[in-house]
Nucleic acid binder design. Structure first.
Lengths: 260, 260
DNA sequence: TCAAAAGTGTTCAAGCTACACCCATGC
DNA sequence: GCATGGGTGTAGCTTGAACACTTTTGA
């Protein structure tokens, strides 16, 4: 018995908050919230539970590439932002935190579950990537049944240690958005400062002063006015901005450097 | 052919700067600098080159545990601070960045080098841990020949992509020391503010105002006066401090949370 | 004209930097 | 006393939070 190597991904996208969702905040919460796609396990252990999309690492495949391919196959997504999160390799991962060994494993006469080392990536999805996604099942067809999106503050029971992994990814996102220009990974190429602020407010789950936010973002020098304005709303039309080209992080592979 | 899983470590300790070392700074550099132990490879590829200490992942061994054991076996070290750095799994790692395939591999009739995925940890070594270390060779004896320490700003040629990995570890250290109380990982239990400042100055390679440094460190609330003073020097005896117990990070396993 | 969000100006508090200055010890 | 680093005080600058106020659009 050797060690199995798997690559999984935590995928995060901003979508409208579900109707009537319970919110932890007393004041009005942001209109959007983070969602993540999960796949239903079709075999033991944890058959029927939801899990992070993932699969075994192929021989001819770099780590990030493996993450991309599993992601495209299971969820139909091809996100621009993809970064390694952590490598999990504890001895007891395969049987969950404190649950007894699933019976199917015993049937196979296996005393110990297989040892799995998971390299987990996290991905941020832009609206157009989100819209273009179509999950494909094992037979090559569309698979709307075994892939489903959930708001991250209302998750079902997850297999293995996947809930802890997801929580860790959220911590990382909230930390990183404060010092690194990754909010653009949730936005189209051109956006208003209100759009950008909505990303920050949704991720950090708190209101941000629009006036101060504007000054801070512009002072960082990452933004560039397109010259266009967004008309149509019944108020003063806001300017459109884009991130300066060299700062548009795709996949920071090998090791990500913290952009200033 | 399957994928090999290895665990390696970047180990960092503060030691006196070597005599007459070239320094990048015009002003007087800190008296100490970072050193790292490397092991000499005894087989192809890269036979004779220096490499990060590491070894294959054992079946019965957690990732961090595997790092600890290789570390103790090769360098004799048992550092308190150990944290996962990154997982490297590129396709061409085994044969180096742009070198031709080493001949020994061809002799074995292998067209491609074995695919290796390395989970790399980084460790910070305290002075007493450093002093207690005694490298052990494969036969179980002391091995002073194939393990050697180098200042990180004067490294020999390294095998594989290990130089990039080391550079990445240094970046991470310099970033993390500014927002997390990890400097204690280079210090004994009790230390003066001058000791602590020396760690920061050595890692960041710049002078720090003692007065402001004192106030900042004390304001963070991580330090606690022992009540003792360090006598013997020909000036006012400085107070000794320790880090508050709950903040003494050992091995942040699973995922490290950024301490405030 | 009004509502609503864009965008600007101003004030206040907190934190950091630079540097002057006193304190305690060994020689 | 004198040199040396420990430790305190303080003025000036920068940054960010809070919020008043003007601008520009659609209805």
């Amino acid at each position: 018995m050797s060690i199995e190597l798997a690559v999984s991904s935590v995928i995060l996208a901003l979508r409208p908050r579900p109707e009537g969702a319970q919110t932890s905040r007393t004041t009005d919460a942001p209109a959007k919230t983070l969602w993540t796609p999960l796949v239903r396990r079709i075999r033991e252990p944890y058959q029927g539970s939801w899990a992070l999309p993932g699969g075994p690492l192929g021989l001819e495949c770099g780590l990030a590439q493996a993450a991309r391919e599993t992601l495209r196959r299971t969820t139909g997504l091809d996100p621009r932002y993809l970064e390694q999160l952590y490598c999990f390799g504890g001895l007891d991962r395969a049987r969950g935190t404190s649950d007894p060994l699933p019976s199917a494993e015993l049937v196979h006469g296996q005393v110990r579950p297989p040892r799995v080392v998971s390299i987990v990536y996290w991905a941020l999805v832009r609206p157009e990537e989100d819209a273009a996604a179509t999950p494909i099942d094992a037979a090559g067809g569309i698979d709307p049944v075994n892939v489903s999106w959930f708001p991250v503050d209302d998750l079902p029971d997850l297999a293995f240690d996947h809930r802890e992994i997801l929580t860790y990814a959220l911590d990382r996102l909230r930390a990183k958005i404060t010092y690194s220009p990754i909010a653009h990974a949730f936005l189209p190429d051109a956006f208003t400062l209100a759009d950008l602020r909505e990303v920050y407010e949704s991720v950090l789950d708190r209101d941000i002063d629009p006036a101060n936010f504007r000054r801070q973002m512009l002072a960082r020098g990452h933004l560039e006015a397109t010259g266009e304005k967004l008309t149509g709303a019944s108020h003063r039309p806001p300017s459109l901005y884009r991130y300066r080209a060299q700062l548009v992080a795709t996949s920071p592979t090998p090791p990500p450097r913290s952009a200033s």
